[in-house]
């Protein structure tokens, strides 16, 4: 199986620090990688955000660990299509993205009355 079910290992996933998101994704873009999507998972104290890119059907991931309450730069300036999924993560996990071109204020899916970040195991209140 080439790549259709790719177990995430260190080979295909680079662990990058919080402030290098834009530079690293720019490097991948210049290499010709296509942005697929981002995923996120709750780790308790922090949220892990994964960026999935692919080129010639090979997936490459970037992993960032965002402590809860910290901000992360939006990569919408590199891959403009990322704004939608960043809004989704913002809503579900409360990760704050800096520089979103179109910010739904955490109301992409839910209404104002949903006060918590619904996908976290321990939710944080929306301010």
């Amino acid at each position: 199986m080439k790549d259709s079910a790719l177990v995430i290992t260190e080979e295909n996933t680079a662990e990058i620090p919080l402030d290098e998101v834009i530079t690293q994704s720019r490097i991948l873009k210049d290499e010709g990688f296509r942005f697929i999507t981002m995923s996120s998972a709750d780790l308790g104290e922090s949220v892990c955000v994964l960026y999935h890119m692919d080129k010639d059907l090979q997936v490459r991931n970037l992993r960032v660990t965002v402590p809860k309450g910290k901000k992360i730069a939006s990569i919408a300036s590199v891959y403009s299509c990322a704004f939608l999924v960043e809004n989704e993560i913002k809503e579900h996990f409360g990760v704050d993205f800096d520089g979103l071109p179109l910010d739904f204020q955490g109301m992409l899916y839910n209404d104002e009355e949903v006060q918590k970040t619904p996908f976290c195991k321990i939710g944080i209140k929306r301010v």
């Binding site: 790549d3 259709s4 079910a5 790719l6 177990v7 995430i8 697929i36 999935h52 997936v59 991931n61």
Partner: peptide, 13 residues
């Protein structure tokens, strides 16, 4: 573990 799985649906990937 963690895995990324992809298939082609009628509408795309």
């Amino acid at each position: 573990g963690e895995v990324v799985s992809r298939v082609e649906q009628p509408r795309g990937e």
